[in-house]
Write a protein that binds this DNA or RNA. Structure first.
Lengths: 117, 117
DNA sequence: AGTATTATTGGCGATATGGCCAACAATGTC
DNA sequence: GACATTGTTGGCCATATCGCCAATAATACT
């Protein structure tokens, strides 16, 4: 494994980490519907607004969301709307769920249907 | 957000967390190629075998891999072979990369009710 | 100007995660 | 049985993450 591989794995791990929190997942799902300001997300999450603001900074830093200023408000919106969907796919491939076609390789994802919207 | 939602988000966060580590991602990629014993993964990762064993326990607990005993060896294999592929998809949807996979509709989030102005 | 609203940042304690060592368990070999 | 090989588990320490409070910034309103 060379240095480039190491960097790639680290970046990918960072991306996944940025998603790996229930509050951030909730926010991502809410943003899939439409853009929201911090207060609206804060109410849904049920945490302190400073906590939510920091969560959003993490998502932003990962390139998953972007913010648009509107007066004193910060509206956040997704950069790409299909993230949760792919998590669905990962979820479905685990043990306990029998949707996985035996022997499928990484290069041939098992169900196109799951990729489309 | 009801209790079921909260549980779902927690489970999903746990799943992502279990993937969100460079060593575990490397192992997942190696296992996409073929099953491997702990020693082989340990050599590739370059960490202590006890560390790798614990990483594998995390992946196993998440339902991403399963182990098959073979003498004193533990061979690990993927439960579903296509996890990395979906991470590719998430990666491609971030800012900096304009392409959103599968012609997703989510590129233009609806603008509805926002808070005040 | 003064006040209110919205959001961000710094800091701190609590908790979780990661990595190695030591010890142990299980199997195979002599 | 004695020993080697392969893995797992418990423990400990270092580091990272999380969540709230206090302070600050930026805009809007009167």
């Amino acid at each position: 494994m060379d240095a480039a591989d190491k960097t790639r794995l680290n970046q990918r791990a960072t991306l996944l980490k940025s998603l790996a929190h229930p509050s951030r997942l909730l926010m991502m799902e809410m943003l899939e519907e439409r853009p929201r300001c911090v207060s609206e997300l804060t109410e849904a999450v049920g945490a302190d607004i400073t906590t939510v603001s920091k969560h959003l900074a993490i998502l932003k830093r990962a390139g998953l969301v972007k913010d648009v200023k509107r007066g004193t408000y910060s509206d956040y919106e997704l950069v790409c709307g299909c993230v949760s969907h792919f998590i669905d796919c990962i979820e479905q491939g685990r043990s306990g769920q029998e949707v996985c076609v035996a022997g499928s390789a990484a290069t041939s994802p098992r169900q196109e249907k799951q990729i489309e919207h």
